Simulated assay, not measured.
Amino acid sequence: MTTIKHRFMRTNGIQLHIAEAGQGPLVLLLHGWPESSYAWRHQLAALAAAGYHAVAPDVRGYGQSDKPAPVEAYRMSVLLDDFTGLLDALGEKSAVVVGHDWGATMAWTCAALRPERFRAVVGLGVPHLGRAPIPPTQLFRSMFGERWFYVLYFQEPGVAEAEFEADVPKTMRAILGGDALDPTAAAHRAKRPGDGLLTGIDVPASLPPWLTEDDFAHDTRELEASGFRGGLNRYRNMDRDWEELPELATARIEQPALFIVGERDPGRSLAPIDSMKALVPNLQEVQVVPGAGHWVQQERPAEVNAAILGFLRALPA
């Protein structure tokens, strides 16, 4: 049985907690919101067994990693320095980067702006969209008008944190097992200004079949200890990233790339896959996992592991 090891590493002036397994070429796994390195538990073992060194950090602000206070400490340019610094600390010149949710956006950006360090990229759930024509919050307001949208709700520091941290198990049941993040859901469309993410949401009494009680307890404990602020600060830097990284408008990802998405991922209604093909000319495959939702690598680990390993084995030596 593969042993997943844990340690802390210094990078870019902070300390990151990493989970790792195996030896061989480096594969860096970046989680999304509101998760941690634990989201990759199924992939760490599979990658190690296949002859890779799999490393999953708790991204700054999450889990056991450092959580700087300033909102701007979570902008994308700083995160890129975290990850390239982590490669340096591991003694590696390059890695394949794999990301899910916000981690996918980080992974695509790593590949686009640091191609000398990231030789291939896998995105899960969120395609590479480059740079919006206007700042993202303006774009969302133009799309949703007066309708409620969770990304806009997350912008005011302290508001979402207070809601989520009042009852972390309830919050996580609604996010992981319900439709709290689905903008097409009736409960989402019925929200009004001043409502919270959980307003009007039916919180499922039972967990989804892919999430055990032990897994859920682990996720809940981590968020009760860390709070939600660090992760939410990523959303609060979207406009700052737009200002700071104009090169994303034209930067092409020339490295080999793979995109995996759940068939039932609600994000598909917001982020059309076809629009990324011009910016990712070496996109090897788009794999839609039948019946899966947003948490695809946890919901369908066998299918996701097979896709990632097939992609890795086909890379140039």
Rank of each mutant, 00 (worst) to 15 (best):
M9C: 13
G125P: 08
T3P: 04
A73G: 09
R313I: 06
D82M: 06
L90W: 07
F154S: 05
T184V: 07
A89R: 12
D81M: 10
P34H: 01
A111W: 09
I134H: 03
L248P: 05
D215A: 00
E299W: 02
I260D: 01
M238Q: 13
R75T: 07
L26T: 15
G262R: 03
A249E: 14
Y150K: 05
G32W: 01
L86K: 05
L176P: 00
G196P: 09
E303L: 14
A314N: 14
Y150A: 08
Y74A: 07
E222A: 01
R192S: 13
R221Y: 08
G291V: 12
A292V: 11
G293Y: 04
E156W: 05
I175N: 01
T212N: 05
I18Y: 01
Q23S: 15
V78H: 10
R7Q: 14
A190F: 09
G123D: 11
Q138G: 14
E35R: 00
Q23A: 15
A251I: 13
V97G: 03
T212V: 08
V286C: 05
A317C: 05
P204C: 11
P157M: 09
G310H: 04
D214H: 06
R131D: 04
A292Y: 04
Y52F: 15
P25C: 10
M276Q: 15
G267L: 14
A45W: 01
G267Y: 13
M76P: 01
G145L: 09
D82W: 09
E165V: 14
M143V: 14
L129Y: 11
L87P: 08
W295E: 01
W40E: 00
Y62E: 00
G200T: 05
A89H: 10
L248E: 10
T2D: 08
V203M: 05
W210I: 01
R264Q: 14
A225C: 07
L152D: 13
M76W: 02
L181S: 04
R236W: 12
H100I: 00
F216A: 00
V71H: 07
P290K: 08
G178K: 08
G231L: 00
V289D: 03
L245C: 06
W108S: 06
V97A: 11
K191P: 03
H53I: 09
R221M: 12
P135I: 12
G178N: 06
E35I: 00
A49T: 13
W102F: 15
R10P: 07
